[in-house]
């Protein structure tokens, strides 16, 4: 019964502007100490109160340094990790309310591409089998139909369909990532989470895969959540970008705003640190150096999480957490001082 209502919800829902809505998403990993009592001593706040929308057909980039919770956000949205609290609404269905079977039925629409292209392919299966497996599980298809669909997918991602019977180790890193993409697309998903899909690849191969992502998006009307630490690539592929720090979104805006007029001091520091492949520009730049290291997410600073490293921090920053506010349409910033700075710009 419940399944039916879920399906009805999908069909009945009129096309809204947002495909994905994430509200107050939290994912805490509790840790315990002590051998006997195994008491809960606290939790690593990997994702802490994250909210955003992803519009149909757009790419939302998520950037941040390692440990900022960008991958966990992606995994929590797809319920690969059950969120601690919060809502994830994909195409009108709230995933957090679904039972495992209902969730399984949602899976064809939501797919993920992982960073390590080798580890995410079963080395003992041929790539034909790997790409067909989602269809075996979710669809009742004839062998022949499945085979021709796999060939079609291989062609789509730029691989030779005759390599159907080869094994993952016979392919290079870039080709393996293409296999991953083909598998993710085999069930015609609406929404794909790409978790650092290109960071293990060489520059010349990165460009190939990025172009493939963009072509597929146009062709199949996909919506991406694109997680990466390479800011220049994110800027290239995204429509909007969320900057994360210690489990929180610090700034969320369109890619032009982010790269031309970043408002949050963390974003500004991050932008100033990206190396630009242009010697003259590079010499003229002034870098903002952040002191110290990122604090532990198990024990984040009081008030604003960035206050310990912020170059313009004031006493209020370490007392009260700033709110998530819209400075202008499509430009959200979490900072006490941005209103003041806005006047200067």
């Amino acid at each position: 019964m419940k399944t039916e209502t879920a399906t009805n919800q999908i069909i009945g829902k009129t096309e809204s502007k947002n495909l994905v809505t994430v509200k107050n998403l939290k994912k805490y990993f509790p840790f315990s100490k002590g051998f006997f009592l195994n008491r809960k001593r606290g939790a690593v706040k990997a994702v802490d109160d994250v909210s955003f929308n992803i519009r149909r057909g757009e790419t939302l980039g998520v950037v941040g340094e390692s440990g900022c919770g960008k991958s966990t956000t992606g995994r929590a949205i797809l319920h690969l990790e059950r969120p601690t609290s919060g809502k994830v609404i994909i195409d009108g269905v709230d995933l957090t309310q679904l039972n495992p079977e209902e969730l399984r039925q949602m899976r064809p629409q939501i797919q993920m591409i992982f960073q390590d292209s080798y580890a995410s392919l079963n080395p003992r299966h041929s790539i034909g089998h790997i790409i067909a497996e989602p269809m075996m599980i979710h669809k009742n298809m004839q062998q022949d139909a499945m085979r021709s669909r796999v060939m079609e997918l291989l062609e789509l991602v730029g691989l030779n369909p005759n390599h159907y019977n080869r094994f993952p180790h016979e392919f290079s890193g870039g080709q393996r990532q293409r296999i991953n993409i083909a598998r993710a697309l085999s069930l015609n998903p609406k929404f794909v989470v790409c978790d650092e899909p290109i960071s293990a690849l060489d520059v010349s191969i990165q460009a190939q895969v990025i172009n493939l992502f963009q072509d597929l998006q146009k062709e199949l009307n996909l919506t991406y959540l694109f997680i990466a630490h390479d800011l220049s690539m994110v800027q290239h592929i995204s429509n909007r970008v969320a900057v994360m720090y210690l489990g929180k979104v610090m700034e969320l805006t369109t890619r032009d705003n982010l790269f031309n007029t970043p408002l949050h001091p963390y974003t500004q520091a991050l932008m100033s640190a990206i190396p630009i492949p242009d010697p003259v520009k590079e010499r003229q730049r002034t870098r903002i150096f952040l002191n110290e290291d990122v604090p532990s997410p198990a024990n984040p600073p009081q008030g604003c999480v960035f206050s310990t490293r912020c170059p313009i921090a004031e006493p209020i920053c370490s007392q009260r957490a700033p709110e998530y506010k819209a400075i202008e349409p499509d430009h959200f910033v979490v900072c006490h001082k941005v209103d003041k700075k806005r006047g200067e710009i």
Binding site: V203, A207, I210, S232, Q235, H236, F259, I274, I276, P277
Partner: peptide, 11 residues
Amino acid sequence: KLLGALPKIGE
């Protein structure tokens, strides 16, 4: 080609 394969910041 390698330089062309890099995304340009601020494009």
